[in-house]
Design a binder for these strands. Structure first.
Lengths: 260, 260
DNA sequence: TCTTATTTGTTCGTATGTATT
DNA sequence: GAATACATACGAACAAATAAG
């Protein structure tokens, strides 16, 4: 560091780090309320006696952590972050599915948080990508039904889910329709004799792809959580692979099980 | 951008982004093998006709994604990333626990990946922090036994776990000893009449704290996964809270359950 | 142990591009 | 169109860690 002062503290850390910590603390302490804006970069620069570059870096850190959202010609808005919950077990239980008015797990979860769910579904038939084929025990290129869902809470995009079902199972059935009817997909599987008995999920955190970043309105370097959800029949046959993608900073995944 | 050229592609993106994508691709394609080093920043700068600042930013992005690890006066090393798996269910099953030689879930999981596990445990008694008290159904400040474990795979730090047990249960028992004996903690709970019957876990991704960043050797802005693991008795009493923290980029969490 | 070259970390100043108001 | 605000880029400098001698 060339200069002797900077921000306030002594300096075991780089200035932009100190500033980031300072702003983070202020946000968490409520000094900058959710929805409000941070002072502009030039403003912060003069206020703390640092260059705009330092401020920009500090803000960049807050962005990647999901604390603020930046709009080009406007400024940095403090995020309103009511953490979204996803229940990895009850989400697929009878009660949640057929609850009055609920059209599936996502709906009931979002409603439980006092938010208004909405989702768009597109169905198509494609050759199975390698990873999908492997998960479903198919040969690469075998036909699968792809159900793409984009989900929103209070109009804000919060989740993408790609569901793959072997064409052999879904073809010509309601599984290949946009509207899956009462009880959702799981009930349809049961009707067709493919009752889902066992579920496996793999959770990982990775960088967001460009399209995910755009849809989920993610800041640069904000990671996503990717969940590979596979449903198996009693005969140990995988009948559905659903890949869920959500912003890592705003979701909490809940699991529960008995130790048998 | 002031300059007309830069990197190679046209330019729908900022240069440091293009460069980051380019390097990321090269790494994933194996052009820079795990354990090898990237060219130096000045080298990359001249090679791609950009300033060092651009290179530095690009590398910074790779770091936060866990692709490379940077050592100050040396350079950027490509990470060896054998993804570590954590099985949220079997991890607490009889078989895994009492498997020959295994001293707990972590041991058997790491061994299953062909790595050598090691861990250090420190036990202490403290007043329960608010969040812990709430999770365990205690009053704030009630005494709890804290078991802090630092875990390594092939000597590399990979996980921190803080386990909290009500003093009332653990006090004076082997639960408050560093060595919990055959079968680990769970077996001891059973011996004491607090058999763990139900498990709940909450998973979230958050920025790493300073100490976590140091211990887990995380790069700046690399997030961690925090798992709150609560064990309940048949009487629905919470008897243990374990908080696990791992690098988000190198772990995969596996779950499995029956749809009952 | 001290010195020097190398490499990354960080900051400043300046300039230009782009989006919003 | 003008003003404001963020995004990037370049160049220059110095600090700090590492490696080689």
């Amino acid at each position: 560091m060339r200069n002797g002062d900077g921000v306030t503290m002594e300096e075991p850390q780089a200035r932009y780090r100190q500033l980031a910590a300072l702003l983070r603390g202020a946000i968490e302490a409520g000094e900058y309320a959710p929805g409000s804006m941070l002072p502009s970069e030039p403003e912060l620069a003069t206020r703390y006696g640092v260059s705009r570059d330092v401020v920009n870096r500090a803000v960049r850190s807050l962005r990647s952590q999901g604390l603020v959202r930046v709009i080009r010609g406007r400024g940095a808005v403090v995020r309103e972050i009511p953490p979204l919950h996803r229940n990895g077990v009850a989400a697929y239980q009878q009660a949640a599915r057929e609850h009055a008015g609920a059209h599936g797990a996502f709906d009931s979860e979002i409603r439980a948080l006092g938010l208004e769910p909405r989702s768009e579904t597109e169905v198509s038939a494609i050759p199975a990508p390698p990873a999908v084929a492997e998960a479903l025990g198919l040969a690469g290129g075998d036909p699968v039904i792809l159900r793409m869902r984009r989900m929103y809470a209070n109009g804000v995009p919060v989740q993408i889910a790609l569901s793959y079902i072997p064409q052999e199972i879904a073809g010509g059935t309601q599984l290949a329709e946009a509207d899956t009817g009462p009880g959702g997909l799981i009930s349809r599987f049961r009707d067709l004799g493919y009752e889902q008995e066992r579920i496996t999920e793999s959770v990982r955190v990775r960088p967001a792809a460009a399209d995910e970043q755009a849809f989920l309105r993610l800041e640069d370097d904000q990671p996503v959580i990717e969940i590979w959800h596979t449903a198996w029949t009693a005969a140990a046959r995988p009948v559905e692979l659903a890949v869920h993608v959500v912003a890592a900073s705003q979701w909490v995944l809940d699991y529960e099980w008995l130790t048998s």
